[in-house]
């Protein structure tokens, strides 16, 4: 792992990077990491790598995937057999 002579610890920043990219840190922690990234040329590539990776992963989501009509009918049939009255 790379080291940085800045006043914010690189190890701590890198440990929080996924949480930072996922927006799962408190606002204070988010600011802390963001400020570190702004100043640390060593950690910024890690952030960019994670950001691009997550964007690629999100693109793998089959957003247009819809339940086929046959499945909808099958689900409704089984629900009615179980007592659904509508």
């Amino acid at each position: 792992m790379t080291e940085c002579k800045r006043d914010i610890d690189c190890r701590g920043a890198v440990q929080k990077l996924w949480d930072y990219l996922d927006h799962e840190l408190t606002p204070e922690r988010m600011d802390e990491v963001r400020r570190h990234l702004e100043r640390c040329g060593n950690c910024l590539p890690h952030h960019e790598y994670g950001r691009v990776f997550l964007a690629a992963l999100a693109s793998a989501r089959q957003a247009d995937a819809r339940a086929p009509d046959a499945l909808r009918r099958r689900v409704m049939d089984s629900l009615r057999a179980a007592g659904l009255s509508t």
Binding site: M1, R11, Q15, Y49, V52
Partner: peptide
């Protein structure tokens, strides 16, 4: 988290991180 980004660092030294934005990874 740490080991994940350490792995990314090693790959980054090879320029592999740029691959992520160059090819269709889906």
């Amino acid at each position: 988290a740490l080991s994940s980004f350490v792995a990314a660092t090693d790959q980054g030294r090879d320029g592999s991180d740029q691959i992520l934005s160059r090819i269709d990874l889906a």
